[in-house]
Structures are given as structure tokens and as C-alpha cells.
Simulated assay, not measured.
Amino acid sequence: MQRKKETGMKRTENRDTLVHHWQKFKRHLPEMAEAYDGESRAAYAPGHLDAKTKRLMAIAVAVASKCEGCMIFQTDHALEQGATPEEIMEACGVAVSLGGTMAASEVTVVMEYLAELGKI
């Protein structure tokens, strides 16, 4: 997703835009949205792994997958679960170890977002 680079919008503005359009989608297809939301609730619920660990894992997957929206929202969720910026950066490091230079360039999304939030 290249929206930020193409439009020059901040990562926080991109987050707000994504939330706005997701809410519109939910109004038009509430059954689909509820199914997705239910799956997410189940996936990130504490179990053998705590919720914070699961969110850090999701950041690594998001970076390796180059999903800007995923990186932004998983970073938010990880912070809500008590993750530190350093833990988030370590999760990004795991993604880089798997995805090489392509993942390394995507880490900038997370770093810019943390900077916009005043976390680093």
C-alpha cells in the first residue's frame, strides 16, 4: 500500500482514513464485518500466548507482507497491550531477518508512525 507516499499524508492521517472507510464498509456489509471482527477477537484473545505477544507477531507479519494499514493498526494494538517502542522495533527486526531489504524498507512505516505518535 503506497497511499502515504503517493498522497503525502501522515501515517496518523492514513489511519483515520482507513477507520472511516472501514466503518462505511461495516455499514454496507455488517455480516461480513462481524465475521471478520469475530475472527480477530478470537485470534488476539489471550491464550497460551498473551495478547501483546500476538500483536507483536502481527507487526512482524505486517512488515513482511508490506501491509501499511496492518502495520499501523497492529502497532496501535500492541501499544494498547503495553508493548514498548523497543519491543515493537524488535518485532520489526524479526520481519527484516525473514524479509531482507524489502522488509527493512517497510520498517520505516512503523518508525514514522511511532514518531508521529511521539513514542520515539
Rank of each mutant, 00 (worst) to 15 (best):
A103D: 14
E86I: 00
N14T: 13
I59Y: 01
K24N: 15
A60S: 10
A51F: 14
V110Q: 00
K54F: 08
G47C: 06
K24D: 04
E6Q: 07
C70E: 03
G100E: 11
K5Q: 15
Q23G: 10
M9R: 01
E106S: 11
R41N: 12
E112M: 07
M32A: 10
L98I: 01
P30D: 04
I59F: 03
I59N: 01
E112F: 04
A78L: 11
G8P: 08
S105E: 11
P85W: 05
K26S: 14
M102Y: 13
A78H: 06
K54I: 04
G47L: 04
V110K: 00
A60L: 10
L79W: 14
Y44F: 15
K4T: 00
Y44P: 08
A95M: 07
K4P: 00
L79G: 10
A115C: 04
M89V: 09
P46V: 03
E80D: 15
L98V: 13
S105R: 06
A33Y: 09
Y36S: 06
T108W: 03
C67P: 10
E34V: 11
K66W: 10
T108G: 05
L29V: 15
V61Y: 06
R55K: 14
M89D: 13
A43P: 03
A115E: 15
G118L: 05
M32F: 06
C70W: 12
R11V: 08
M32V: 14
A115Y: 10
P30Q: 08
R11E: 14
D50F: 12
E6R: 00
K54P: 03
E31K: 09
Y36W: 15
L18C: 14
G38E: 07
E39G: 09
K10Q: 05
E31I: 11
E68C: 01
H48Q: 13
S105K: 10
H77V: 01
S97E: 09
I59G: 02
H21T: 13
G99H: 04
H20G: 05
A91K: 02
A64L: 11
T7C: 00
P30F: 05
Q2P: 04
E13G: 00
E90T: 03
P46T: 09
T84A: 08
E31L: 08
A33T: 14
K119F: 05
L117F: 09
K66V: 09
Q2C: 03
A104T: 08
A62I: 02
M9A: 12
L18T: 09
K52N: 10
H21E: 14
L114H: 11
A62H: 07
H77S: 11
E68Q: 09
L114P: 14
E39Y: 11
D50M: 11
G82Q: 08
T84C: 01
D16F: 12
D16P: 06
T12F: 13
Q81N: 10
L114V: 07
S40W: 15
A58P: 10
Y113C: 00
E112K: 06
A83W: 05
Y113T: 01
S97Y: 12
E80V: 07
G118S: 13
F73Y: 12
E112N: 11
V61G: 08
G93L: 06
T75G: 08
H21Q: 14
R55N: 05
G69W: 12
V61K: 07
E90I: 07
R55Y: 15
T101N: 14
A43K: 05
G82S: 11
Y44E: 06
Q81I: 06
E6S: 03
R27N: 15
K66G: 04
